[in-house]
């Protein structure tokens, strides 16, 4: 299971799509690790240097909705700002999120691009708390 600075994750695949299982110690780290793992499906961050920073604020009614909003906002940023995001700092206050995201500029011809994610889905979405921490299961449309 690969380690991120925020937690551990594995990738899984279905017939047409891909997803991630993530484990972390806190809910903030879980959000950060999920973002890192999602970009790991899209971008080879080897050699990328941070040259941009984004501030994100989101609010939702439920933590699962907030997680999907967070991942989909990052997909939006990646596509419209041509940003390969690879450092994340998340602060949560209930279902309010504030985040700082570091990214490298990347164009569609870059060899660092390895795949595309259209969106994070709600299919089988789970955030489970246990004595060992938190676990997340999320499927992407690729």
């Amino acid at each position: 299971m690969p380690h991120t600075p925020y937690g551990r994750y594995t990738q899984f695949d279905t017939t047409a799509d891909m997803g991630i299982d993530v484990e972390s110690d806190t809910i903030e780290h879980l959000f950060e690790a999920a973002a890192f793992a999602m970009f790991d499906l899209m971008i080879d961050s080897t050699g990328l240097i941070s040259d941009r920073r984004f501030a994100i604020q989101l609010e939702s009614d439920a933590i699962e909705d907030l997680l999907i909003d967070w991942l989909n906002e990052l997909i939006f940023l990646s596509e419209t700002r041509r940003a390969a995001c690879f450092r994340f700092q998340v602060t949560l206050d209930g279902c309010k999120l504030r985040a700082s995201v570091e990214a490298a500029s990347i164009d569609s011809d870059s060899t660092n691009r390895i795949g595309m994610i259209k969106a994070a889905t709600y299919h089988g979405l789970k955030i489970v708390r246990s004595d060992a921490g938190l676990r997340l299961h999320v499927l992407f449309d690729v």
Binding site: T14, T15, A16, D17, T121, Y122, G124, L139, D141
Partner: peptide
């Protein structure tokens, strides 16, 4: 048909 999300493909 194959696995989708919600509806199958």
């Amino acid at each position: 048909i194959h696995f989708g999300y919600g509806f199958p493909i």
